[in-house]
């Protein structure tokens, strides 16, 4: 199973590099989608079906959003990455990251050993043993997300709320400065209401 995981991770890394360095935006979006679906398969292999469902569903919606926001308005290619100092800076940052990752991964515990086998009073022991009796939820992930750690979910809901308001604020026409409004004169603004 670890060989399959390593293959999937290599596939994801290659697709991420392709997404950065391709010129066609459609290919870049498809490569980003490949990264997302690869990580969904990794979650499924590691025994996290909740995360796999969320990842695959959000990935599809994000792909549709990306295509809708870039390609269907006529932005088809990009060439901002090719020249100048940015690729060198990215390469230098990657090298620094890899060095520190190597240094820190030597101290990491062994793969696929859960944290409660190493730490005696980890909170996950309590979640697993008393989760069903104190939350009533058969799905322990949901019991943790919406009962033990509901503050995190509150933050997530706040983020979505803010995202909607940010999108509306950035893209609206009503309420912008009069300088901009003069350039397309007289057209009715606002979506519905």
């Amino acid at each position: 199973m670890e060989a399959l995981l390593i293959l999937l991770l290599l596939f994801m890394i290659i697709s991420a590099v392709v997404a950065l360095y391709t010129e066609e935006l459609l290919s870049a979006v498809i490569a980003v989608g490949a990264v997302g679906f690869g990580s969904s398969a990794v979650f499924l292999l590691l025994g996290a079906p909740d995360l796999a469902i969320t990842q695959i569903v959000v990935e599809v919606a994000a792909l549709v959003l990306l295509i809708r926001a870039t390609i269907s308005i006529g932005v088809k290619t990009t060439s901002a990455w090719r020249s100048g100092w940015q690729p060198k800076a990215v390469a230098a940052a990657a090298v620094i990251f890899l060095v520190f990752a190597f240094l820190s991964f030597r101290d990491m515990p062994e793969f696929s050993v859960p944290v409660m086998d190493r730490i005696a009073d980890a909170p996950s022991i309590f979640y697993l043993e008393d989760g069903l009796s104190s939350t009533g939820s058969t799905n322990h992930v949901m019991g943790v997300l919406l009962d033990f750690r509901a503050y995190d979910t509150l933050g997530e809901a706040t983020i979505i709320f803010t995202a909607v308001f940010g999108t509306l604020t950035l893209l609206r026409k009503r309420g912008k400065k009069a300088v901009n409004r003069n350039e397309y004169s007289g057209e009715k603004t606002s979506p519905k209401g």
């Binding site: 909740d50 469902i53 969320t54 058969t138 799905n139 992930v141 949901m142 997530e156």
Partner: peptide, 11 residues
């Protein structure tokens, strides 16, 4: 069925 099987409010 988010509390019985994988899934939940977000997905």
């Amino acid at each position: 069925y988010g509390h019985l099987s994988p899934g939940g409010g977000f997905p």
